[in-house]
């Protein structure tokens, strides 16, 4: 009961803060929050792979890019294509990419997996640059209309309105992240955790390790694709450097490392830190690399594992101290 109340309070606070934000912050900072939500969804989708199969992808931009390009090309070529189908199709396209690659990816682990995903990511990047008739090359696809969200009989919401788009993004991202959260609680999700810990045993139990891994690739790809689609809707331009560059793959890795490895909410915290930091840098300094570089070094040396662990460590120490004090009082 206690836990339920705590969760309820947390949700109410979250909804109140998230709901009020655009009215307090103004358009520019609201847009930063949009970016944060999208990036958090992207980082969590990568974390799904890392935490629940133990492999780190260096090419997650591939799925992000597939999602973004699907949305941009659909809206560019098909007049009046509706919003939600565009979003879902983008996710499905990226998920499909995950399924197609999975027979090759499931064979390897560790560094080899990282390198193989890096190779596929770079291959996709270069192919997109080469097929400029379709993708527009470096200039990318631009000038497509962002469709409104039509809820039949209720309303038609204009997605060009920053506040409306913010609410839309937050809803999509929260749903996406929650689905991934509940996934880790389902029997299938538990099997997946088993794969990470001891894939042989799971195999003996009768589950098919490779098939299960393939599902994870598809799911992770799906949500990365959704994040990419949101990026396309938000930016109005999708270019190869913007969605498929190798740094697009590295950025969510950094979010996971800074936020907290091996936790579900760490990547979200990490996304927040990185996005807010970038905004601060843009405003106050030209030494972007120095600030970012020092942050990475400091995190690794003094907050190993990420800020979530620092927080949990503090909480644990606090509890221990309280326990000790209460014991002293008793004594």
């Amino acid at each position: 009961m206690n836990k339920f109340v705590r969760n309820l309070i947390m949700w109410v606070v979250f909804l109140a803060v998230a709901g009020a934000a655009p009215h307090v912050l103004g358009i520019v900072k609201t847009n930063v929050l949009v970016e944060l939500a999208t990036f958090a969804l992207f980082a969590v989708s990568l974390n799904l792979l890392l935490s629940f199969t133990g492999v780190l992808s260096f090419g997650h931009a591939l799925f992000y890019g597939v999602g973004a390009y699907t949305t941009a090309l659909l809206l560019y070529h098909v007049e009046g294509f509706p919003l939600i189908p565009a979003l879902l199709l983008s996710g499905l396209a990226a998920g499909l990419a995950g399924l197609i690659l999975s027979p090759l990816l499931v064979r390897v682990t560790g560094t080899a997996f990282a390198m193989l995903t890096l190779a596929f990511g770079q291959l996709m990047y270069i192919l997109c640059l080469k097929f400029r008739e379709v993708t527009g090359g470096e200039d990318g696809v631009a000038g497509y209309d962002i469709p409104p969200l039509n809820i039949p009989g209720v309303a038609s919401l204009d997605m060009l309105d920053s506040t409306v788009f913010y609410y839309f993004t937050v809803v999509v991202c929260v749903i996406g992240i929650m689905i991934m959260w509940f996934f880790t609680k389902t029997p299938l999700g538990q099997v997946v955790v088993g794969i990470r810990d001891n894939s042989l045993r799971v195999d003996y139990l009768g589950y098919r390790v490779r098939h299960t891994k393939a599902i994870i690739f598809a799911l992770s790809g799906f949500f990365a694709g959704i994040a990419g689609s949101l990026f396309a809707l938000f930016q109005g331009v999708v270019s190869t450097d913007g969605v498929l560059h190798v740094m697009v793959s590295f950025y969510p890795i950094m979010a996971i490392l800074i936020g907290g490895i091996g936790t579900f909410f760490g990547p979200i915290l990490g996304s927040g830190i990185l996005i807010v930091l970038e905004d601060m840098i843009m405003r106050y300094t030209e030494r972007a690399e120095l600030v970012t570089g020092l942050l990475f070094i400091i995190v690794v040396l003094y907050v190993p594992g990420g800020f979530v662990w620092l927080w949990m460590g503090l909480v644990a120490r606090f509890k221990a101290r309280k326990l000790r004090m209460s014991k002293e009082v008793e004594a």
């Binding site: 358009i27 520019v28 990318g140 930016q235 270019s239 970038e278 843009m282 030209e286 972007a288």
Partner: peptide, 20 residues
């Protein structure tokens, strides 16, 4: 307005210049 050479940052920088 620092674009950092990236599309997403360019949008942010431009919007900040216009709105703030």
């Amino acid at each position: 307005g620092d674009t950092m050479g990236k599309p997403a940052t360019t949008k942010k920088a431009a919007e900040k210049l216009v709105l703030e």
